[in-house]
Design a binder for these strands. Sequence first.
DNA 1: GTGAAAGCGCTAACAT
DNA 2: ATGTTAGCGCTTTCAC
Lengths: 341, 341
Amino acid sequence: MGRAAGRRPTLADVAERSGLSKAAVSMVLNDRPGSRLSADAAERIRAAADELGYRPNPAAQSLRLGKTRTIGFVSDEVTVTRYASGMIRGVLDAARAHDHTVLMAEATGHDLAEAVQAVTDRRVDGLLIGLMAARLIDVPDLPADLPIVLVNGVSAHDHSSVLPDERPAGAAVARYLLDRGHRDIGVIGDLPEVANDPRRSATIADRFAGIDAELARDGVSAARLDLAAWSPDVGFAATHRLLDAHPDLTALIAGNDSLAFGVYQALAERGLRVARDVSVISFDDDEFAAFQRPGLTTARLPYEAMAKRGVDMLLGHAEPGRVRLPMPLVVRDSVRDLSAR
Amino acid sequence: MGRAAGRRPTLADVAERSGLSKAAVSMVLNDRPGSRLSADAAERIRAAADELGYRPNPAAQSLRLGKTRTIGFVSDEVTVTRYASGMIRGVLDAARAHDHTVLMAEATGHDLAEAVQAVTDRRVDGLLIGLMAARLIDVPDLPADLPIVLVNGVSAHDHSSVLPDERPAGAAVARYLLDRGHRDIGVIGDLPEVANDPRRSATIADRFAGIDAELARDGVSAARLDLAAWSPDVGFAATHRLLDAHPDLTALIAGNDSLAFGVYQALAERGLRVARDVSVISFDDDEFAAFQRPGLTTARLPYEAMAKRGVDMLLGHAEPGRVRLPMPLVVRDSVRDLSAR
DNA sequence: GTGAAAGCGCTAACAT
DNA sequence: ATGTTAGCGCTTTCAC
């Protein structure tokens, strides 16, 4: 049992108390196969360590081993923003599962290189770069032997990375509507300017390509409205514009949940009920998607799973490479089944 | 200029390259007053360090100095949840300002003591405990010399802590309504069960006490509805119930923004417009408060400022003790001015 | 003014 | 099978 003593006990203290050598203590506590200690000796050592409340000093271990059992996590703004909190959970959980701790640094406003430097200065064993929006970035120079993986991002070089698999998600969203009898569909939110620039988004183009391809399979061509930004107020304005032009639409696909928030508001203002009058479906599964009334059906961005996979790759528990993870469709109540009537 | 060399350069490398001793290099690089090196020698050392891209090994420094320049941040769920992301930003920024890094651990599901242990095992220089909801907790045993401060929480012992100053905020919210001519006011969301248990909330009682006192000053007694939980759907149901009983209400005070989200939904369902027909005001300033339509006026929980103050206290840059920080009223468009008509 | 040397706590190679 | 020792990279007394 640990006491809150003055000086923290060291290996030497445990050795002295157990009447054995430091080497013996080290062997037992790390149960190295080296040489079998007598069961009795091992017992004495464990007892002594326990009584003293001994905890190894990680600085000493790092110095000796050249490993820190710490990974660095630098992000553009996922740490400090609500959107990708699942990513933090994933990183923390996966790191703990492999007995590593996480050093976080934020690159908001700063140079990414600066944040990376701060972290590598601490001699982390691996570097995870997490991005808010999936995009292409330049990875700063870093020690040649430092493993690195990008979560929700890609580099121009061949760094390992994990991205959401947007194309099938786009197709699944369209298919969900099609299967329920919708053929008069509006698509709110393609961002041509962003979609064509991988440094702004490496995946949005896939999202819409998936939608378009699936719609085309059934011969439906959607009413489209391109946008310049994704926020509730532009979703609000866009909905009004689209519905003014096409009052016959039975379903709306929003580029993401933030836009869909605005769609709900606009629909309410027009006296239209979500699902009953106009169905809505979207992407991301933001926290408030479940709070909408009715609950918003949306294809989830798998932040937590991506982070976990990233850590696993970083620590050698998963194949490295460029990976895409599925975006599950979270079904709630915002889509009406027209085929049943 | 740093090269991505094979082995990382050490102090000894810098010494060799500059033709001086390790001691001299250490002195110069940390500019110790000890003994003045010749300006020329100092220059040579800096140049050598620069060319080599030398960065001190923190493990070695920690071992020698007994300091890690790292603080531990353990929280119940602020890390992995969107609500208090401002707290993370505050911690990270303040730590960097004092040249410290942050080790994060999450106590969700686990024992708080377990997360604290994980962090103190790493020999952090200070411990920050951050809570989602301001409440009273028991701080686990820890090394006697480890500074600790609670952010958005208090302990039964006299640990330093920083809390939001809820009473004045409650008063300010009520006053804001009163000053605009509202006298038929509904209060949605007191949680008697929670408010009376400091281990569930150490501040909610103050919030409502502030509201009540200020209302009483002007002789108005609100229509109150006590709740058992704070979520959009209970806010939704509560609004309907309250308005059914008191159709004459001109303003609603919601216990927090999550509740207010439901208030908006219920009002919309009744064909009532926020502000024009019924004013709404709330607490927290959640991210989506600004996205509501009209924007929600709310008393902000100063997560970022609390975190910053906490770090400053921890690192000796601010007076320790029990501190309360103001909750600024963020004025948007959800309250109508009745006195002007 | 400058450098040699000890030592922080730990592990692994080497003696015994 | 157990113990002794060197050394990871750094800072800081203490001689020179």
